[in-house]
Simulated assay, not measured.
Amino acid sequence: MEGARTDILPPIHPALAPLGFLLGSWRGAGEGGFPTIKSFGYGEEIRLWHTGKPVMAYTQKTWKASSGEPMHAESGYWRPRPDGSLEVVIAQSTGLAEVQIGTYDTENKTVTLHSSLVGNASKVTAISRRFQVTGDDELSYTVEMATSGTNQQLMPHLRAVLKKVS
Rank of each mutant, 00 (worst) to 15 (best):
A15I: 03
L22Y: 03
A57E: 12
E107P: 01
L158Y: 11
V99M: 06
V88H: 01
K163T: 05
A65K: 12
T147F: 10
H114C: 04
S116V: 05
P14D: 01
I46V: 12
M56P: 05
L9C: 02
E44Q: 09
M71I: 14
G68K: 06
A15H: 03
V124L: 10
A57L: 12
G102R: 00
Y77Q: 15
A160I: 02
E2K: 15
V143S: 09
L117V: 06
V89E: 02
L22S: 09
S128K: 09
D137H: 08
H50L: 01
G32W: 03
V99H: 08
L139C: 00
G24A: 13
G41Y: 11
H114K: 14
R159Q: 05
N151I: 04
K164H: 02
G43M: 08
T142N: 10
S67H: 10
I12E: 04
F131E: 01
P11W: 00
P14R: 01
G20T: 07
L9V: 03
S128W: 15
T106I: 09
P54T: 11
Q152A: 08
R5L: 10
G41A: 08
E44L: 09
T110V: 10
T134V: 07
F21W: 12
P156E: 09
P14E: 01
A65D: 05
A160M: 02
V111Q: 00
T142F: 10
W26D: 01
V124R: 05
